[in-house]
Amino acid sequence: MNIFLQTIINGVIVGGTYALMAVGLTFVLGFMDLVNFAHGELYMLGAYFTYFFVVTIALPHIIGIPLAILVAMLLGLLIERFLLRPVWDKDILIRMLLTVGLMILIPNVITVMLTAVPKKVPPPFTMSPFILGNVRVAPIQLLIVLVSVFIIVLFHLFMQRTRLGKAMRATFQDKEVAMAMGIDTKKIYAYTFSIGCGMAAAGGAMLSMIYNVFPAMGAITTTKAFAVVILGGLGNFAGAILGALIVGVSESIAGTYISSGYKDAVAFILLVLILMVKPSGIMGKKGGIEK
Protein backbone atom coordinates (compact mmCIF):
# COMPACT_ATOMS: atom_id res chain seq x y z
CA MET A 1 0.00 0.00 0.00
CA ASN A 2 2.75 2.44 0.93
CA ILE A 3 4.68 1.61 -2.17
CA PHE A 4 1.54 2.20 -4.17
CA LEU A 5 0.93 5.57 -2.52
CA GLN A 6 4.53 6.55 -3.05
CA THR A 7 4.22 5.55 -6.69
CA ILE A 8 1.12 7.68 -7.17
CA ILE A 9 2.70 10.70 -5.52
CA ASN A 10 5.82 10.40 -7.64
CA GLY A 11 3.57 10.19 -10.67
CA VAL A 12 1.64 13.31 -9.76
CA ILE A 13 4.89 15.22 -9.28
CA VAL A 14 6.19 14.21 -12.70
CA GLY A 15 2.73 14.85 -14.15
CA GLY A 16 2.87 18.43 -12.88
CA THR A 17 5.84 19.25 -15.07
CA TYR A 18 4.35 17.35 -18.01
CA ALA A 19 1.29 19.54 -17.57
CA LEU A 20 3.36 22.67 -17.91
CA MET A 21 4.90 21.38 -21.14
CA ALA A 22 1.56 20.20 -22.48
CA VAL A 23 -0.31 23.41 -21.69
CA GLY A 24 2.31 25.44 -23.57
CA LEU A 25 2.16 23.10 -26.53
CA THR A 26 -1.62 22.88 -26.68
CA PHE A 27 -1.89 26.67 -26.32
CA VAL A 28 0.23 27.31 -29.40
CA LEU A 29 -1.43 24.45 -31.26
CA GLY A 30 -5.01 25.36 -30.41
CA PHE A 31 -4.68 29.10 -30.73
CA MET A 32 -2.24 29.49 -33.58
CA ASP A 33 -2.78 26.23 -35.49
CA LEU A 34 0.92 25.69 -35.12
CA VAL A 35 2.12 22.13 -34.68
CA ASN A 36 5.30 23.07 -32.89
CA PHE A 37 7.85 20.28 -33.08
CA ALA A 38 10.42 22.65 -31.61
CA HIS A 39 8.54 22.94 -28.31
CA GLY A 40 10.92 20.53 -26.59
CA GLU A 41 13.91 22.46 -27.96
CA LEU A 42 12.77 25.50 -26.03
CA TYR A 43 12.53 23.21 -23.01
CA MET A 44 16.11 22.17 -23.67
CA LEU A 45 17.21 25.77 -24.12
CA GLY A 46 15.44 26.73 -20.90
CA ALA A 47 17.62 24.16 -19.15
CA TYR A 48 20.80 25.40 -20.86
CA PHE A 49 20.01 29.04 -20.15
CA THR A 50 19.48 28.08 -16.52
CA TYR A 51 22.86 26.34 -16.58
CA PHE A 52 24.39 29.50 -17.99
CA PHE A 53 22.87 31.88 -15.45
CA VAL A 54 23.07 29.65 -12.38
CA VAL A 55 26.32 27.76 -12.98
CA THR A 56 28.42 29.72 -15.46
CA ILE A 57 27.78 33.17 -14.08
CA ALA A 58 26.64 31.94 -10.67
CA LEU A 59 23.47 33.95 -10.19
CA PRO A 60 21.12 32.73 -7.47
CA HIS A 61 18.38 30.38 -8.75
CA ILE A 62 15.63 32.83 -7.93
CA ILE A 63 17.12 35.30 -10.43
CA GLY A 64 18.76 32.88 -12.86
CA ILE A 65 15.65 30.80 -13.60
CA PRO A 66 13.32 33.73 -14.38
CA LEU A 67 16.09 35.19 -16.53
CA ALA A 68 16.42 31.90 -18.41
CA ILE A 69 12.67 31.90 -19.06
CA LEU A 70 12.78 35.51 -20.18
CA VAL A 71 15.61 34.88 -22.63
CA ALA A 72 13.68 31.93 -24.08
CA MET A 73 10.64 34.19 -24.50
CA LEU A 74 12.75 36.77 -26.31
CA LEU A 75 14.12 34.04 -28.54
CA GLY A 76 10.50 33.03 -29.17
CA LEU A 77 9.75 36.58 -30.30
CA LEU A 78 12.67 36.43 -32.73
CA ILE A 79 11.65 33.03 -34.10
CA GLU A 80 8.12 34.31 -34.62
CA ARG A 81 9.23 37.56 -36.21
CA PHE A 82 11.77 36.18 -38.66
CA LEU A 83 10.73 32.58 -39.33
CA LEU A 84 7.04 32.15 -38.61
CA ARG A 85 5.57 35.54 -39.50
CA PRO A 86 6.38 35.18 -43.20
CA VAL A 87 4.52 31.86 -43.33
CA TRP A 88 1.44 32.40 -41.11
CA ASP A 89 -0.75 32.74 -44.19
CA LYS A 90 0.79 29.74 -45.88
CA ASP A 91 -0.19 26.12 -45.61
CA ILE A 92 -0.10 24.60 -42.14
CA LEU A 93 2.39 22.02 -43.44
CA ILE A 94 4.96 24.69 -44.21
CA ARG A 95 4.87 25.97 -40.66
CA MET A 96 5.05 22.45 -39.33
CA LEU A 97 8.10 21.64 -41.42
CA LEU A 98 9.69 24.85 -40.27
CA THR A 99 9.39 23.74 -36.66
CA VAL A 100 10.80 20.34 -37.62
CA GLY A 101 13.76 22.22 -39.04
CA LEU A 102 14.22 24.03 -35.75
CA MET A 103 13.96 20.73 -33.92
CA ILE A 104 16.96 19.50 -35.89
CA LEU A 105 18.89 22.76 -35.96
CA ILE A 106 18.76 23.89 -32.33
CA PRO A 107 20.19 20.77 -30.63
CA ASN A 108 22.92 20.55 -33.24
CA VAL A 109 23.92 24.15 -32.71
CA ILE A 110 24.08 23.48 -28.97
CA THR A 111 26.15 20.34 -29.55
CA VAL A 112 28.63 22.24 -31.72
CA MET A 113 28.88 25.07 -29.22
CA LEU A 114 28.93 23.13 -25.96
CA THR A 115 29.44 19.44 -26.90
CA ALA A 116 26.90 16.79 -25.97
CA VAL A 117 28.40 16.11 -22.56
CA PRO A 118 25.58 16.33 -20.01
CA LYS A 119 25.63 19.25 -17.62
CA LYS A 120 24.20 19.52 -14.16
CA VAL A 121 22.53 22.39 -12.41
CA PRO A 122 22.71 21.98 -8.64
CA PRO A 123 19.42 22.47 -6.77
CA PRO A 124 19.15 25.68 -4.77
CA PHE A 125 19.16 23.81 -1.48
CA THR A 126 19.79 20.36 -0.07
CA MET A 127 17.17 19.19 2.33
CA SER A 128 16.27 15.75 3.54
CA PRO A 129 12.95 14.45 2.18
CA PHE A 130 9.65 15.18 3.88
CA ILE A 131 8.35 11.98 5.37
CA LEU A 132 4.65 11.44 5.85
CA GLY A 133 4.02 7.98 7.20
CA ASN A 134 6.06 5.87 4.82
CA VAL A 135 5.81 8.24 1.91
CA ARG A 136 8.83 10.35 1.06
CA VAL A 137 8.77 13.51 -1.01
CA ALA A 138 11.95 15.33 -1.97
CA PRO A 139 11.56 19.06 -1.27
CA ILE A 140 13.05 20.01 -4.63
CA GLN A 141 10.47 17.88 -6.43
CA LEU A 142 7.71 19.42 -4.40
CA LEU A 143 9.04 22.87 -5.24
CA ILE A 144 9.14 22.03 -8.93
CA VAL A 145 5.57 20.81 -9.03
CA LEU A 146 4.35 23.80 -7.03
CA VAL A 147 6.10 26.21 -9.38
CA SER A 148 4.58 24.36 -12.37
CA VAL A 149 1.13 24.67 -10.86
CA PHE A 150 1.80 28.32 -10.07
CA ILE A 151 2.81 29.05 -13.67
CA ILE A 152 -0.26 27.27 -15.07
CA VAL A 153 -2.56 29.19 -12.70
CA LEU A 154 -0.82 32.44 -13.56
CA PHE A 155 -1.23 31.69 -17.26
CA HIS A 156 -4.91 30.91 -16.75
CA LEU A 157 -5.51 34.18 -14.88
CA PHE A 158 -3.58 36.07 -17.54
CA MET A 159 -5.76 34.65 -20.31
CA GLN A 160 -9.02 35.16 -18.44
CA ARG A 161 -8.51 38.44 -16.65
CA THR A 162 -6.11 40.68 -18.49
CA ARG A 163 -6.83 42.88 -21.48
CA LEU A 164 -4.02 41.26 -23.42
CA GLY A 165 -5.22 37.75 -22.57
CA LYS A 166 -8.71 38.58 -23.78
CA ALA A 167 -7.30 40.16 -26.92
CA MET A 168 -5.43 36.91 -27.58
CA ARG A 169 -8.57 34.86 -27.24
CA ALA A 170 -10.46 37.31 -29.44
CA THR A 171 -7.73 37.25 -32.09
CA PHE A 172 -7.77 33.50 -32.43
CA GLN A 173 -11.57 33.37 -32.50
CA ASP A 174 -11.84 35.91 -35.30
CA LYS A 175 -8.67 37.60 -36.46
CA GLU A 176 -10.29 40.01 -38.88
CA VAL A 177 -12.81 41.30 -36.36
CA ALA A 178 -10.07 41.53 -33.72
CA MET A 179 -8.22 43.89 -36.07
CA ALA A 180 -11.36 45.94 -36.42
CA MET A 181 -11.34 46.32 -32.62
CA GLY A 182 -7.93 47.94 -32.98
CA ILE A 183 -5.98 44.89 -31.82
CA ASP A 184 -2.52 44.58 -33.32
CA THR A 185 -2.91 40.94 -34.32
CA LYS A 186 0.68 40.63 -35.52
CA LYS A 187 1.87 41.42 -32.03
CA ILE A 188 -0.67 39.01 -30.58
CA TYR A 189 0.81 36.21 -32.70
CA ALA A 190 4.28 37.09 -31.49
CA TYR A 191 3.25 37.23 -27.83
CA THR A 192 1.34 33.97 -28.05
CA PHE A 193 4.28 32.10 -29.50
CA SER A 194 6.58 33.71 -26.99
CA ILE A 195 4.41 32.64 -24.06
CA GLY A 196 4.37 29.06 -25.38
CA CYS A 197 8.17 29.17 -25.54
CA GLY A 198 8.31 30.57 -22.03
CA MET A 199 6.26 27.70 -20.66
CA ALA A 200 8.47 25.13 -22.35
CA ALA A 201 11.58 26.87 -21.06
CA ALA A 202 10.14 27.04 -17.55
CA GLY A 203 9.73 23.25 -17.59
CA GLY A 204 13.32 22.79 -18.74
CA ALA A 205 14.64 25.33 -16.27
CA MET A 206 13.07 23.53 -13.35
CA LEU A 207 13.87 19.99 -14.38
CA SER A 208 17.49 21.00 -14.98
CA MET A 209 17.81 20.93 -11.21
CA ILE A 210 17.05 17.22 -11.00
CA TYR A 211 17.91 15.80 -14.43
CA ASN A 212 20.95 16.05 -16.67
CA VAL A 213 21.01 18.81 -19.24
CA PHE A 214 21.99 17.62 -22.71
CA PRO A 215 21.19 18.58 -26.32
CA ALA A 216 18.90 15.65 -27.11
CA MET A 217 16.64 16.16 -24.08
CA GLY A 218 14.18 18.21 -26.14
CA ALA A 219 13.15 15.61 -28.69
CA ILE A 220 11.78 13.02 -26.26
CA THR A 221 10.03 15.82 -24.39
CA THR A 222 8.34 17.03 -27.56
CA THR A 223 7.04 13.59 -28.43
CA LYS A 224 5.83 13.00 -24.90
CA ALA A 225 4.17 16.40 -24.73
CA PHE A 226 2.41 15.61 -27.99
CA ALA A 227 1.26 12.28 -26.59
CA VAL A 228 -0.18 14.10 -23.57
CA VAL A 229 -1.85 16.78 -25.67
CA ILE A 230 -3.41 14.34 -28.12
CA LEU A 231 -4.46 12.09 -25.26
CA GLY A 232 -6.20 14.98 -23.49
CA GLY A 233 -7.79 16.41 -26.64
CA LEU A 234 -6.09 18.87 -28.99
CA GLY A 235 -6.22 22.47 -27.85
CA ASN A 236 -7.96 21.58 -24.59
CA PHE A 237 -6.25 22.95 -21.48
CA ALA A 238 -8.08 20.84 -18.93
CA GLY A 239 -7.43 17.84 -21.16
CA ALA A 240 -3.72 18.63 -21.28
CA ILE A 241 -3.52 18.79 -17.49
CA LEU A 242 -5.55 15.62 -17.02
CA GLY A 243 -3.54 13.84 -19.73
CA ALA A 244 -0.31 14.92 -18.05
CA LEU A 245 -1.39 13.51 -14.70
CA ILE A 246 -2.57 10.27 -16.28
CA VAL A 247 0.73 9.83 -18.11
CA GLY A 248 2.80 10.82 -15.08
CA VAL A 249 1.01 8.39 -12.78
CA SER A 250 0.96 5.55 -15.31
CA GLU A 251 4.67 5.94 -15.96
CA SER A 252 5.34 5.82 -12.29
CA ILE A 253 3.19 2.71 -11.86
CA ALA A 254 4.89 1.01 -14.81
CA GLY A 255 8.29 1.95 -13.41
CA THR A 256 7.49 0.45 -10.01
CA TYR A 257 5.54 -2.66 -10.95
CA ILE A 258 6.82 -3.61 -14.41
CA SER A 259 10.23 -2.24 -15.23
CA SER A 260 11.62 1.25 -15.39
CA GLY A 261 12.85 0.43 -18.90
CA TYR A 262 9.24 0.57 -20.14
CA LYS A 263 8.54 3.90 -18.49
CA ASP A 264 8.92 6.05 -21.60
CA ALA A 265 6.74 3.75 -23.67
CA VAL A 266 3.75 4.13 -21.36
CA ALA A 267 2.61 7.50 -22.68
CA PHE A 268 2.45 6.13 -26.21
CA ILE A 269 0.74 2.88 -25.29
CA LEU A 270 -1.88 4.90 -23.39
CA LEU A 271 -2.21 7.22 -26.35
CA VAL A 272 -2.99 4.38 -28.72
CA LEU A 273 -5.45 2.78 -26.30
CA ILE A 274 -7.36 5.99 -25.64
CA LEU A 275 -7.47 7.05 -29.27
CA MET A 276 -8.97 3.68 -30.15
CA VAL A 277 -11.83 4.39 -27.75
CA LYS A 278 -12.11 8.15 -28.26
CA PRO A 279 -10.37 9.48 -31.37
CA SER A 280 -10.68 13.12 -30.30
CA GLY A 281 -8.90 12.50 -26.99
CA ILE A 282 -10.28 12.42 -23.47
CA MET A 283 -11.69 15.94 -23.42
CA GLY A 284 -11.43 16.81 -27.10
CA LYS A 285 -14.41 18.08 -29.04
CA LYS A 286 -15.61 16.21 -32.11
CA GLY A 287 -15.69 19.35 -34.22
CA GLY A 288 -11.97 19.92 -33.77
CA ILE A 289 -10.04 22.49 -31.80
CA GLU A 290 -11.83 24.96 -29.61
CA LYS A 291 -10.26 28.39 -29.21
Binding site: K166, Q173, D174, V177
Partner: peptide, 22 residues
Protein backbone atom coordinates in the same frame (compact mmCIF):
# COMPACT_ATOMS: atom_id res chain seq x y z
CA UNK B 1 -19.89 43.00 -39.66
CA UNK B 2 -22.17 40.85 -41.76
CA UNK B 3 -23.16 37.72 -39.86
CA UNK B 4 -22.52 39.52 -36.52
CA UNK B 5 -19.22 37.75 -35.83
CA UNK B 6 -19.28 38.28 -32.10
CA UNK B 7 -16.41 36.51 -30.31
CA UNK B 8 -18.26 33.29 -29.45
CA UNK B 9 -16.14 32.15 -26.50
CA UNK B 10 -15.96 35.57 -24.89
CA UNK B 11 -18.71 36.77 -22.59
CA UNK B 12 -20.98 39.65 -23.53
CA UNK B 13 -18.99 42.00 -21.31
CA UNK B 14 -15.67 40.77 -22.71
CA UNK B 15 -16.95 41.35 -26.24
CA UNK B 16 -17.80 44.92 -25.28
CA UNK B 17 -14.40 45.27 -23.66
CA UNK B 18 -12.79 44.28 -26.94
CA UNK B 19 -14.95 46.87 -28.67
CA UNK B 20 -13.35 49.45 -26.39
CA UNK B 21 -9.84 48.12 -26.98
CA UNK B 22 -8.64 51.51 -28.20
Amino acid sequence: PEGRRVFPKLTVLENLEMGAYV
